[in-house]
Simulated scan of single mutants.
Amino acid sequence: MAFLRTLFWIVITVIVVVFSIRNWSAVTISLFGDLQADVKLPVLLLIMFLIGFVPTYAWHRAFRWRHARKLAMVDRVATPTVTTVVPATVPVTPPAQVPPQPAYLQDAPSPSPVTPDPFKAD
């Protein structure tokens, strides 16, 4: 895409240069009163182009800047802020003392889950 953009500007530059070379003649402009100015035609066209382009470009940039500021403000307002709530400290009580198991229960296997008897009728 950058190649096409570069090619476009090269074509525009060639057209402007060819136009300027072929029309490099003096144009007399009548200013106010008896005052007259001789200006080359390409220079006159460039000045007229800038008189039309610069105010429009300035308005466009101001418009974009203003809208960018409004969008930034809306984003700041719309973005939810995450607040962390610090829980109050609760005093921790030590666990109750569990009496030791008798010796005959320490080596006992853990009880297996109850399975239904397949031969027993409901």
Rank of each mutant, 00 (worst) to 15 (best):
W9L: 05
G33S: 03
F49A: 05
V54K: 03
F19C: 12
I29S: 04
L44S: 02
I12G: 11
L46R: 01
A78E: 05
T83F: 11
I12C: 15
Q36C: 09
N23H: 14
T83D: 00
T79C: 08
R69L: 09
Q101F: 11
P99W: 10
F63G: 10
T13W: 02
A58F: 00
L35D: 04
V74G: 00
Q106W: 12
M73N: 09
S25M: 09
T84Q: 09
V90M: 04
V86E: 01
M73L: 13
L50S: 11
A68M: 06
S30L: 11
F19E: 09
V90R: 00
T81S: 05
P118W: 03
V92W: 00
V43F: 07
V14D: 13
V86N: 06
F49H: 06
R22K: 15
T28F: 07
Q36I: 10
Y104V: 13
P87G: 02
V86L: 04
W65C: 05
P113K: 11
M73T: 10
V92D: 02
A26F: 15
A78M: 13
T79I: 09
R69C: 01
F3G: 14
Q101M: 12
Y104W: 10
I12T: 12
A108N: 02
A121E: 15
V85N: 05
